[in-house]
Every structure is written in C-alpha cells, then in structure tokens.
Design a protein around this nucleic acid. Structure first.
Lengths: 344, 344
DNA sequence: TTTTCTCAGGCAAGCGGTTTCCAACACTGT
DNA sequence: ACAGTGTTGGAAACCGCTTGCCTGAGAAAA
C-alpha cells in the first residue's frame, strides 16, 4: 500500500520495507557487479514481492543510458510476408530479453522517417527496417541521414531486403532466385512467359524481374517488353495484372508474379474468367507465404525463410558490432508445385 | 557536435546553442501551457534542428510520469488472425501518437504474465490483450492479479476475445455467430455435420461449437458427440481432424471448423485423400481471414472485422475511462460461399 | 509618476532509478 | 598490537527531462 497518487511502487518503498538503503535495494534487484549479503538480498526480494514491485523501465533506461527495446519497421504488419518476419524478430528478441516496438509504415517513406526518429527518441537499442526500398534517391538520402544520426547516438540498425545502406543487412537474393525460377520453369518446358512485375520503383519487384529475365536469356528464351505487366505489389495488383494479360491476349503458357499474394490474385482472376490453373495457364510466385501453402493448385514459388530472416536480423543487431556492415545473404529455394506442371 | 561519449544530443546542448535556459528550451519544444517569446522559440527550434535533437523519451516519461507506448499481447503474430488485429491497433495507435510494443506469447500463459509485468515496468499507457482465454481458473486468476496491479499503477487494459476479466473488452460474439452459421447451413439443406472443434479448453473454440450446436438444435438437427473432433486450433489441427472424420467414416455432408486456418487444413486433407470440396464434402470456417479469401473453393465462413476490432480496442483504452468496464460486442457475419453449396 | 498586473525566463527541485565513492568492518599476516 | 587487504552498506551525485516557483520587465491602471 503506497500513498502516492500514481499508485505505483517505487524502489524506495521496497528499500524502506526491507530496511535497507536505495543502493542496496537496487543492487539486490538488479546490480550485477556488486554483491549483497544474502540475508539482506532476501529481505529486499521479499519486500519486492510483497509490494508487487516492478522497476520503472524508463528510470532505468535514463540512469543506465540504454533501454531494452528494439524497433521493428515493416511496410504492413497485416501482410503475411511481414508478419512472418516480425514473428522471427520477436521470438529472437524475446530470447535476448528485449521488447519489440512495432511500426507499420504503410510504405510511406515519411512515416518511416518519422518512426526511426521516434525510436531514436526511445533510445531503442536497435532498429530493424524490413521491406523493400524504393528507387527514389532523395528518400533514400533522407533515410540515410536519419539512420546515421540514430547510429551516432549509439543505436544499431539492420535492414531486411536490399543492401542500400551501409548497415548490417539481411539481403534477399532476389535476382538469383528470379534466375533460378526461370531456369526451373524453362526446365519444365515453358518458353512463353508473362511477368506480373509489380511497381517499377520497388527494388524487390525489380530485382526479381531482372533475375527472371536474366535466367530466361541465359536459357535462350526471350521476354517481350509487353509481357511485363506493372501493377501494385498486392493481391489486387495481381488480379488486375492478370486481366491485362488476358485482355492483351498474350500468347503465354506461364505467368510469374513477383510475389505470392499477387500470384494468388492472378489465380483468382483466371478463375473469374472461367479459366483454370494450370490447365489453361501456369502461375508462379515468390516468398512461399505459409498461409498460402494450401491454395489449389498448390503454388510454385521461391521460398524464403522469413521467420529465420527476422531472427537473423535481430542477432545481427545485438552482440558485437562489426567493423564494417555485415551482409547476410539469404537465397530462395525454388519450390515447384502443381501450379506449373511440366509441359513435357 | 557534442563531446559526450554517448553521442546523443541533450536538451542542454540545444539550450546552450540557442542561448536560453533548459526550461525555456523544454517549453519551446514541448511544454504546451507556457508560452515562449517567438524569437526565442525560433532560436530553440533552429538549434534543435541543427543538432538533430530528439528528446529522450525515457527521460520525458520519468519526468512526466507517463509514457507514450501501449502494449499489445497476441498469441502468435504470424497468425493472420492476430496480424490483422495488430494492424488495426497499430493504425489507431499511430493516430493517437502512441507507439505499440508487441509481444507474441505463443499461447503460453506464463509468458503472457511475464509480458504484462514487463509492460507494467515500461509504464505502458495501456495494454491490449488479444486472443482467446483458456478455461483454467488458476491461470485466469494469476492474470487477473497481474492485470489488477497494472491497473493499480494507472494503466489501462482492454481485452479482445472473451469478457472474462472486469476490463474494457471487445468481445467476439462467437456463440451467436456459431448459431447463425448453423442456421445458414441448415438453410442450405445440410443436416449431417461434423465439427472440427479445436481444443476443449479454448473459450473461442468452445463458444463457437456451443453456438453451432445450439443453432442446430434450434433447427431440429442433432450433432452426435462422436461428430465433434478435438484437435489443435491450427492448420495442421484441421488437417488431422478431418482425417479422423474420414477414418471414422462419419456420415456427414458438411464439416465446420472453428476457424479458417483449420478449415483450410481440412480442405487440404480432403484433397490428400482424393476427395473434393464441396462435391464430396462441404467445409466452413470462422474469421474470414483475408489471405484465405482466394482459396478454392471459396470458403464459407463467419466474418469478423479484425482490423476494426483492433482499433476499437485501442480507442477503448485511450480516452476517458468508464466507470464500469465497457463491453463492445462484435458480431460475425455469415458469408456463404462455394465451399458449402446448397443441397437443394 | 507610482502602483499593480501580467507575462515570460530561469533556477532548482523533482521524476525513479544506477553507480561512484567513501567509510565501516572483518580478516589476514607479522 | 598494528598495518594491509577485501568486502559490503549507504550517502549522494547523476541520468535527461519537466515544472513549480520566483523574479524582473514592461504594460496597464491609477
């Protein structure tokens, strides 16, 4: 029972109840360096329990000069791609005794900036920025500046996606995986493709397309410019893009979308037109979203270990800082499934 | 350029550069009550910008006695059910200028406890606990205690799921929606059902089953005990449960799972046995998970406005506290789709 | 002109912890 | 018996910010 208005118990209350000084109470509850005589320690611990004491993390943070939270920035936490990554980050953070504060930026670079600033204010131990960068130098420069001053204050940062900033990054091998997918599909006998390529500015989308195209070229297959359809990086984007493919009456056997949700949108569009996948058109995607593993036909895709990428990012960002930014490349694994049958 | 080791800029630095006192600098940057002469204010603001100053949120929190973070506890952020809710919470929090720290408890009540404790330590403005409670009085009592002392410290709390604690809650009308689903399915001509009922202890699962059964009873249809299959509340749980239905050779026309991911698992199991949905067996679920809206056949389900529930929870928890806990019931909307055709 | 207000700046006392530094004490070794 | 050493408790400085209170200056009132 405390008499403060606020109602929360302070260390002083604990110390008083235990009949020791603040210093001793603090050391008994947290301080690792100094030892406290056993009987005193016990008295303090008992008092803490009796009062349901929990240290004020803010006070600790200001006194210690560091806090136990890390920030995670994602484009959209509702997107399974990001929620999987978040799951990995949170799990790893949990093991380290860190709390994760999550921001969903809605792909708005201004909000992104604003959040790393807020996290700087929180003196967050680290921030992890997940999600593809956009090819707009001005925005990247701003982010770079904000990140720089965050790091100047002692914060660590890691990115998940492209390696566009001089910080530790978990980099998706989008290009290589696009290439691998191309080879695999060509191996199945496909020769005429369309690509639902997403937004041109989004590096992830672009790299996947480039890699895919490169893979085709390597196999002696060409991809006409008009077979590259731009749209949103979303389910609806995939839906619309596939409609365009159909409307343009492109002569293709396989459509590859630059992510799974787009691929699923494309399959939906196909059905809406009374066509079937894969009988009428093969479809492939990227990411291997867990929730989408049971769509029918099962979707050929490139698997990325999303959760693992999240926990890797976190581990990059705790522990010793490297002299130079570390690069953790993760490659995709082509998963051939029913949506792209062999044309043999 | 500061000479502190830490490297982060303090208000004092700003004040010095602007040639004013700490008090004035503080007021110019935040203090709303008191006014600062325009020229001084401007000097301070300029100095802050020049130094890239960001207030130390922890110091502010301890000085002000409150912080700008709210905690969100979910069972599993990788689960689309929870990531949708999280999206809603985050969006609403953002509008209020609040940061969200997210914990994923893995359905472990001990971890849940530990997190609300941690959030108490963070002096989080509020905590939102999402996800079904489990019928274990001892655990509920512990949580109730922890929540109580959190609230004693001035924290607000809301729950999303059942109304088992005397706090503001966004309550899913699971029972009513189960009933509604039953009526709808009976209306389609179905009479012989099995239910993939999830874990018996989970209130959400239990309520949905109870409601469904009640709906059947009301329609004069019975549900034999052996038609109720227990399993995990997950995709794999649905998969296994459906195998049991098949193995037991239950004579049913429709299987309803207590959530969408289970339903999808069930559909997968069906396919694995060479059976088709809905031709051989109709399937229905609950939640209307966005990512699953494109499965084939499209899944009959009960829609809950998950994002909206998240933002509602947040709004309950900011703003004025009610005298008594407010209850915000949200009802599900039955969505009949291809997976449950009419037997007419 | 003097007196009374009002306004805004600055000093300093917090907020709730941690940690440095000092002193007290108990042992050791001679 | 005494200096030397190691341990442990407590007083107080400090972390970075907010805010109550005092003060001086100028405006308004007399």
């Amino acid at each position: 029972m405390t008499d403060r208005l606020d109602g929360s118990v302070r260390l002083e209350d604990v110390a008083k109840l235990a009949g020791v000084s603040l210093a001793t109470a603090s050391r008994a509850l947290n301080g690792s360096t100094r030892r406290v005589r056993d009987d005193l320690r016990e008295r303090v611990l008992d008092a803490a329990i009796a009062l349901q004491y929990t240290a004020n993390a803010h006070a600790q943070a200001v006194a210690r000069g560091r806090s136990d939270v890390v920030g995670l920035l994602v484009h959209d936490i509702g997107d399974p791609f990001f929620s999987s990554i978040a799951a990995g980050v949170i799990q790893a953070a949990d093991r380290e005794g860190l709390l994760v504060t999550l921001a969903s930026t809605g792909r708005d670079p201004a909000r992104e900036l604003q959040f790393v600033r807020a996290l700087r204010g929180q003196r967050a131990r680290a921030v992890i920025i997940a999600g593809s960068r956009v090819d707009e130098p001005a925005q990247m420069a701003q982010l770079a500046r904000e990140v720089a001053s965050y790091r100047a204050g002692g914060g660590r940062v890691a990115m998940i996606s492209q390696n566009r900033l001089p910080v530790d990054t978990v980099m998706l091998e989008n290009r290589a995986s696009g290439k691998a997918l191309a080879k695999a599909l060509v191996g199945l006998g496909h020769r005429r493709f369309a690509v639902l390529a997403g937004p041109a500015e989004l590096f992830t989308a672009r790299d996947r397309l480039d890699g895919f195209r490169q893979g085709l070229t390597g196999a002696g297959v060409s991809l006409p410019a008009r077979h590259i359809i731009r749209s949103d990086f979303t389910r609806d984007g995939g839906y619309e893009a596939l409609q365009q493919v159909l409307d343009a009456d492109l002569d293709v056997t396989c459509v590859v979308a630059v992510n799974d949700v787009m691929a699923v949108g494309a399959m939906a569009a196909l059905r809406a037109r009374g066509l079937r996948c894969p009988a009428d058109l093969a479809v492939a995607g990227f990411d291997d979203i867990v929730t989408l593993r049971d769509v029918t036909p099962s979707l050929t895709t490139v698997r990325f270990p999303l959760e693992e990428m999240g926990s890797t990012a976190l581990s990059l960002v705790v522990g010793a800082e490297g002299v130079r930014p570390r690069l953790h490349a993760v490659e995709g694994q082509v998963m051939i499934r029913e949506s792209t049958p062999s044309l043999g």
